[in-house]
Amino acid sequence: MTDILTIKNLSYKRNLTNILNQLNCSLPTGSIVGLLGENGAGKTTLMRLISGAANHYRGEIKVSSETSPSDRKQLVSFSHQVDDVNRSDRLEKIAHFYEAVYPDFSTNKFQRLSEFLNLDLSRHLNDLSKGNQMKFIIAITLSRQVKLYLLDEPFDGIDSMSRKKIIASILQWKPEDATILISDHHVDDIANILDGILIVKDKRIIVSKNADKIREDYGQSIEDFFESFYKGEDQND
């Protein structure tokens, strides 16, 4: 399988703080990968860098064959692209914005996804529950037809019904050759749908492994495997 994403020696600093240092990783085409790490480990930062939202870094980030941030924006759909919409607008109005601004946005897919997720498009975004707001963000993000999707903490503070529905929509609507990177700090929810995991720690990717391989080689659940990297530290606290 070819790689959709390759990162070489990526270093990134903000406000004089090193956030990522000499990070290397790659993602195979057509997979679903969990980006795991504690809060503040740099998961969101890594996604911002991949998406093209952050431009001041050292090293190389290549999506498909594109390395410049503005070219990468065409190939990546990042859930944070819904951050600053007018929350008092109706969902259908917000969707029109994405339809106009992203040439790769499929209105048809969006409509079918919203139906699947039971979203009422005539409602206002700020009237929705947290779970439904996240469903909407996922619907917008997945409605762009791109090679790489970045979903940042889609299950944070979401009720279990919405969580299940979102997971089902990811499985149902992921184009076969597209890759999805999902960040999470409690893997348990999504362990079953992952092909592999990346663990961010100490400003680098310290683990990049196939999920079933972990179960096979270590006889451990993904969650236990992930937590084993933090065990020593908790006792020190």
């Binding site: 911002r48 998406s51 093209g52 939202a53 503005s70 924006k73 065409q74 990042f78 944070h80 692209q81 819904v82 951050d83 600053d84 919409v85 601004v101 992203y102 040439p103």
Partner: peptide, 16 residues
Amino acid sequence: EKMWTSNTYRLIPVSE
């Protein structure tokens, strides 16, 4: 000025 630091606008695939 808000547009420069907003993901909603900065992620639109156009040059700066």
